[in-house]
Structure formats: structure tokens, C-alpha cells
């Protein structure tokens, strides 16, 4: 389902221990700490591999996450805002990641800009719950989606580089 590089990156993300969702008042803060630990490790690894591609942060109780992700295509950097809520059934079900500014531009998206993952993602997540966390969601969900969709959207002219947009306007 994923290429060799993704698999390698995923295998280096630490697995999570606390089986707790946001409704579990006692254990959720522990889970949240583990989420941050795994995310920090993943971002550091990406940086070391010269493949830094996203940032995420949450509200204080960790139920709403926002951030940015970017994609380099032909030496140009395309950046997008991303957001998602932690569902009450997390970590048994994965959050639905949304890239709102791409809403309506691709059919591989549900309303509100929620990305449409491949058929392999849900089984993979289910088999690895609760050890997979948000870092895995980024690596196995959003990453491969961007890699397929963004070049396609650029080639169709639906995504235009901000610099080029300015040039065109001038």
C-alpha cells in the first residue's frame, strides 16, 4: 500500500501505549503526551532525512488539531492548511483529515475538504489500533494522498504556486 520510503519512515515512528480516547479523562492526557512524543520524533526524522513536510498543533485538550503541510513539486513549495477533530471513538477509528482549501478541486475528497483515503487505510489502522497515532495518520494517510493528488492538481492548473499567481496578476 505504501512505497519503501514511507514504510521505512513509518517503522521509525514510535508506537503508542495508552489506549485512551478524549472521553477518557484519566488516561487521555497520557495518550496526548505520547501523541506529541511520536509527532516530535517523526518531524525530527523527516528533518534529518531532508523531507520535512508538515507541522501540527492542538488546542489545550488535544481534541482539535490544526497545522500546515507542504509539498515540493518541480522545486516549488506548495503549502496547505490542514485540520481535524479527534473523534470520540479515537484511537479505534482514525480522525478524518481535512485540507479545506482543496475542497471542490478533487474528487478524492469528501465534503468540507476531508481527504478520501485508499481502501487499504482503514484495515491497516484497525489492525494496528491503538498503537498507531497521529504521526502514523500523517505518514500513511495524508502523505501518500498529497503525493498522488498535488502533482495531478498542479498539472490540471487547479493548484497554482503562490509566487506564480502573483506574477500572473502583475
Amino acid at each position: 500500500m505504501a512505497d519503501e520510503a514511507t514504510r521505512k519512515a513509518v517503522s521509525q515512528i514510535p508506537l503508542l501505549k495508552a489506549h485512551a480516547g478524549p472521553r477518557d479523562r484519566a488516561l487521555w492526557p497520557q495518550r496526548l503526551k505520547e501523541e506529541y512524543q511520536a509527532l516530535i520524533r517523526f518531524v525530527e526524522q523527516n528533518k534529518a532525512a531532508d523531507n520535512d513536510w508538515f507541522r501540527l498543533e492542538s488546542n489545550a485538550d488535544g481534541t482539535r488539531w490544526t497545522g500546515t503541510c507542504w509539498f515540493i513539486h518541480e522545486l516549488l513549495r506548495y503549502e496547505f492548511r490542514l485540520e481535524f477533530d479527534i473523534p470520540v471513538t479515537y484511537p479505534d477509528t482514525a480522525p478524518e483529515v481535512a485540507v479545506p482549501e482543496l475542497d471542490g478541486k478533487t474528487a478524492k475528497m469528501y465534503r468540507g475538504g476531508k481527504i478520501c483515503l485508499t481502501d487499504h487505510f482503514a484495515p491497516l489502522w484497525a489492525r494496528n489500533a491503538p498503537r498507531f497515532g497521529l504521526a502514523h495518520l500523517m505518514a500513511l494517510g495524508l502523505g501518500p494522498w498529497l503525493a498522488v493528488e498535488i502533482p495531478d492538481l498542479i498539472s490540471k492548473g487547479l493548484v497554482v504556486h503562490k509566487g506564480q499567481q502573483r506574477e500572473a496578476a502583475e
Binding site: S11, P14, L15, L16, K17, Q37, P123, N128
Partner: peptide, 15 residues
Amino acid sequence: AYTIPAENTASGDMV
């Protein structure tokens, strides 16, 4: 829709 292994076999380092 899919099958799940009896044992959670995800391997690797834990946090």
C-alpha cells in the same frame, strides 16, 4: 470488510 489478527502484531519501538 477486512480481517484483524488475533494478536496485535505491530512491531517496533514504543514511545
